[in-house]
């Protein structure tokens, strides 16, 4: 049985810093198992957020060797255990303690986005008719588990702290799911342009790279939204032709 060193961010406020823990690494273990083992063996005060341990609740987001990842989905055999494994909290949100951050800002942003507003029902019984192919496009966005790793890695939030002006990739995915929904009649493009600050995104695709659900955030959500915003606000020719277009 091999032993591995985990260099974990510990503490709160200015007194926080890295602390090394050594524990056994056995076959099949993930980083979250190691953190739990350290809690049991060495430091019961070590705080981390977790829930399902199956990559579906999005709670155990952290930075492992500098890469935003879910602790429960990062196997130890993917990591080089000959050197300390660095585990840090997410850096785009206020730090609470140890590996825990306060992600509540995300929920406030989500609440501000205009909700789903379906067209009038298609049938007298109050139901709608939509085609499978039209729904498929937004199904991808519904896989989001709200782990906020995309928000964490986005440099607009992480490095530039544009939280007051920028909604972030998670909320662009959420908005895209609503905007592209075949039943939806609401227009959120103005909101995305101004309050959501979609123009701040400079297409680094980091959000797509870290998404544990493999949502193609940049290509399928953000860029199509940027193009729609361009249609609506920056492209005089498209605006002119829209006069003659029938309702989509």
């Amino acid at each position: 049985m091999a032993q591995a060193t985990f260099r974990i961010w510990k503490g709160q406020g200015d007194s926080a810093g890295f602390k090394d823990f050594v524990t056994d690494a056995t076959v099949g273990m993930v980083v979250l198992d190691a953190v739990h083992q350290i809690q049991a063996e060495s430091d019961p005060t070590l705080a981390c957020r977790w829930n399902c341990k199956a990559g579906k609740c999005g709670s155990c987001s952290a930075e492992i060797n500098g890469n935003p990842r879910l602790m429960c989905m990062t196997r130890l055999d993917q990591l080089d255990l000959t050197v300390p494994v660095i585990i840090e909290p997410m850096k785009s949100f206020p730090h609470v303690r140890d590996l825990v951050t306060d992600v509540s800002w995300n929920f406030r942003v989500k609440k501000a986005i205009k909700p789903f507003k379906p067209r009038k029902p298609d049938a007298p019984d109050g139901t709608w008719r939509i085609q499978q192919q039209d729904v498929e496009r937004v199904q991808e966005f519904r896989k989001c588990i709200e782990c906020f790793l995309c928000q964490d890695v986005c440099h607009v939030l992480r490095d530039h702290h544009k939280h007051p002006e920028f909604a972030g990739p998670r909320h662009f995915v959420y908005t895209a799911a609503l905007e592209m929904h075949p039943l939806d009649t609401e227009n959120r493009l103005g909101q995305m342009k101004d309050a959501g600050g979609i123009g701040y995104c400079n297409i680094t695709k980091c959000c797509t790279k870290v998404c544990p659900e493999h949502i193609t955030i940049t290509d399928n959500a953000i860029i199509p939204l940027k193009e729609r915003v361009t249609d609506e606000y920056y492209d005089p020719i498209t605006r002119f032709f829209k006069i003659f277009k029938t309702n989509q």
Binding site: K91, S92, F93, P94, H95, W105, R108, V109, K111, A112, I113, D159, H160, H161, H163, P164, F166, A167, H171, A195, G196
Partner: peptide
């Protein structure tokens, strides 16, 4: 969007 003051890690 709606925001509260956020105390964030140093750039």
């Amino acid at each position: 969007m709606s925001h509260a003051d956020l105390r964030l890690p140093q750039v």
